[in-house]
Write a protein that binds this DNA or RNA. Sequence first.
DNA 1: CATTCTTAGTTGTACAGTACAACTTACTTA
DNA 2: TAAGTAAGTTGTACTGTACAACTAAGAATG
Lengths: 243, 243
Amino acid sequence: MADNREKALDGPGRLDFPRPLTTVDVVIFIVREGVLQVLLIQRPTDENEPFPAAWALPGGFVDTGRDADLQSCAVRKLKDKTGVVSPYLEQLGSWGSATRDPRGWSATHAYFALLPAAPLASAGAADARWFPVGTGKGKLKLAFDHAEILEAAIQRLRSKVEYTSLPAYLMPPEFTLPDLQRVYEIVLDRPLEKSAFRTRMLAADLIEPVARMRKGPSRPAQLYRLKKTKSPIYFARTFNPPT
Amino acid sequence: MADNREKALDGPGRLDFPRPLTTVDVVIFIVREGVLQVLLIQRPTDENEPFPAAWALPGGFVDTGRDADLQSCAVRKLKDKTGVVSPYLEQLGSWGSATRDPRGWSATHAYFALLPAAPLASAGAADARWFPVGTGKGKLKLAFDHAEILEAAIQRLRSKVEYTSLPAYLMPPEFTLPDLQRVYEIVLDRPLEKSAFRTRMLAADLIEPVARMRKGPSRPAQLYRLKKTKSPIYFARTFNPPT
DNA sequence: CATTCTTAGTTGTACAGTACAACTTACTTA
DNA sequence: TAAGTAAGTTGTACTGTACAACTAAGAATG
C-alpha cells in the first residue's frame, strides 16, 4: 500500500504542501441504433456530494494502493462500469484547476474508449446509461467540467476519424464494408464516397475477408474482420474535406 | 491560498486518503544552429533529492496557491526558465504511476512548447541548457520518466508537422519560404519538395509578405511574417509520406 | 417465371495536389 | 563580363479522391 505520510525533509525537497485531488475519467463511446453514444453515470443523490444526482463521466479518484499507473486506473473504471476488458483506449488529456471540483484543487486524467458494437450493449451498472451524442441540440448539464471534456473527446474522435482507422474499433467482430462506411458517416455526420472509401480501406491492409457473406433483402455483402494485432492506420489524406 | 486540510466527511465523500504528487513538466523546443533542440534542467546535487545532478525536463509541483489551473502552471514554469511569455503551448499528455518518482505515487501533466528562433536564444537559467534532439544516437539518461515523455513529445511534434503549420511557431518574426522549408526539414529529418511546399504554404493563407527582401550571396528572397491571430493550419494531406 | 426493388460492388472520367526535374531569375563575387 | 549560387517558376507524370453511371446478386412481387 502506498503511504500518505511522507517524511518531511528540510530544504527544497520537503513534500508537506497541499496536494491536488487526482482523478481519472473515461469517455466511453459506442455506436448503437445508428447513433454515436456515450456512457454517463448518475452521481449519488447525497447532498454532501458535489453535483448530487447530476450525470457525469465514469471515473473517480486514483487509488494509490490498487492502481499501478493511470492507464490501469482507467482500465479498472472501464471494467467496473461496462465489464469490457480491452477495448481501444487512448489518453485524451488532463484538466486541472482550483475550481473544477468544489472539494478543492483537482486534476483529472481523461481517457477515451471505443467499444465494439454488440447485440446487447447494455450499460453494466444500474446508475449508468447511454446517451446519444447530440448534434448540437439538447445537451444536458454534466457534473464538474465533464461537458468540456466530453466535447474535447468528440472533437478528437471526429478529427482522428478523418484520417485514421479508428472506427474499426467500433465494429462487431464481423462486418461488411458498407457497415464500416456507415459508422464512419455516423461519427463524421456526413456522407462519404463509396468507391474511394472502399479503395482506401482495402489498401490499408487492415481488414481481411472471412469465408461468409452477409445475407439480406438485397445483394449479399462480403464479411470482413479486423486483422490481428492491428494498431490504428494513419492515412496520408483526410476524406473529402467538408469545406 | 488553497488549503491542504479537507473536512473529513463520513461516508463515500471522505477525502482522507493518500493523494498522488502532482507535477507539470514542459518540453521546450527550439531550432538553433540548424538543429532541433530541447531545454533541460540539471537537478540539484543534493543527495536527498531524487535523481541528483541528472538532467530533467523543466517542471515541478503544482502550487495550489499560485496556479489557477494546469495551463497557467505550465506557463509559469516556462517563463521561469526562459523568460518567454506566450509561445505555442500544447498539452502533450500525462504520466502517472506508483514508481516514476521515488517519493511516492505521482502524476505529471506534460506540455510542449515551440519557441521562435531568436538571435541569442540562451537558456534563461544557470542550471539550464539546450540539447540537440539526437537522431537515435547519444541519448543521455534523464531523471524520472522524462526520456519517455521527451520521446513522446518528439513523436507528437514530427507527426503534427506532417500535416500542420506548427513549424511557423519556430520561426523568427520575419523569415523566407526557404527558411520555413528548412525548419520543416530539420524537424522531419528529410527533404521536402520545393514547389509543392511553396504552393501549400501560400495557399494556406498563413503568412503574408512584408515589403523587404532578405539579401544574401545569391538571389534575394521574399520575407514573410505570420498573419496575426493565426492558430495552426491543418492540411488535408501529409507531405510525401516517407514510405 | 419474368419484373421490379434494393443494396453491393465496379468502372470510367475529371480533378486536385504532389513528385520530379528542368528551367529562369537576380544578385554576389572573381 | 563570366561564373556561382540560391530563389522562384514551369511543365509533365502520377496518386488518390470526386462524381456519376454502371453492373451484379439476391429478395419480393405479380
